[in-house]
């Protein structure tokens, strides 16, 4: 005996207490284990899945965005090249149009000038011919007046006068 106390009593299970502990613990286990802990652990597990799903989804979205960004960059580059090309083409077109216009204008002008020259020549010739006719008429009249009767209107005289007129160079 330890100072008047039997330590064995501490180590002897008590029937009533064993009964009550069994009852309370088994009730607790069945009640809480089945109706509270199972849903809780399930909720925790589900949430873990949700979180990991969300994380992988975010990772995917990030990758997609990156891909889209690189796509955008290449698109932008393409667009830039396209626009540069278009600009270059436009410039070339413009240049060609301008030179064409220039050339055609030149041609036109040359044509106009040429036709004008021909016209002028024709006019000049016509004018000269008229002047010659006029001069020959005048000189004939003058000669008629001057010579009067000496000269008849025989063919010999006529051709002579004409040759004279021919010899007169207007210019």
């Amino acid at each position: 005996m330890l100072l008047g106390f039997d330590p064995m009593s501490l180590l002897t299970p008590d029937l009533g207490l064993v009964f009550w502990t069994t009852l309370v613990f088994l009730t607790f286990w069945l009640l809480v284990g089945k109706f509270a802990i199972k849903p809780i652990t399930k909720a925790i597990k589900d949430r873990e899945h949700t979180i990991s799903d969300a994380l992988s989804a975010a990772e995917n979205a990030k990758q997609e965005v990156q891909q889209m960004q690189s796509n955008n960059a290449s698109l932008l580059k393409e667009a830039r090249e396209e626009s540069a090309k278009i600009l270059k083409e436009a410039k070339e077109l413009k240049d060609s149009i301008v030179t064409e216009a220039h050339n055609s204008a030149k041609d036109e002008a040359a044509k106009i000038v040429a036709s004008a020259k021909i016209e002028i020549d024709a006019q000049k010739k016509a004018a000269l011919a008229e002047v010659k006719n006029e001069v020959s008429k005048l000189s004939l009249e003058i000669a008629q007046k001057v010579i009067g009767k000496e000269l008849d209107s025989s063919k010999e005289h006529q051709s002579y006068i004409n040759s004279l007129v021919e010899k007169i160079n207007v210019n």
Binding site: D14, L15, G16, L17, W20, T21, V24, L31, I37, I40
Partner: peptide
């Protein structure tokens, strides 16, 4: 002795608290 002793009382109290919490 199947009494609600102080230990059983304590256990029931703990049982009640835990059940409510859970």
């Amino acid at each position: 002795d199947f009494s609600i002793t102080k230990n059983v009382f304590n256990m029931l109290l703990g049982f009640l608290i835990l059940t409510v919490i859970f």
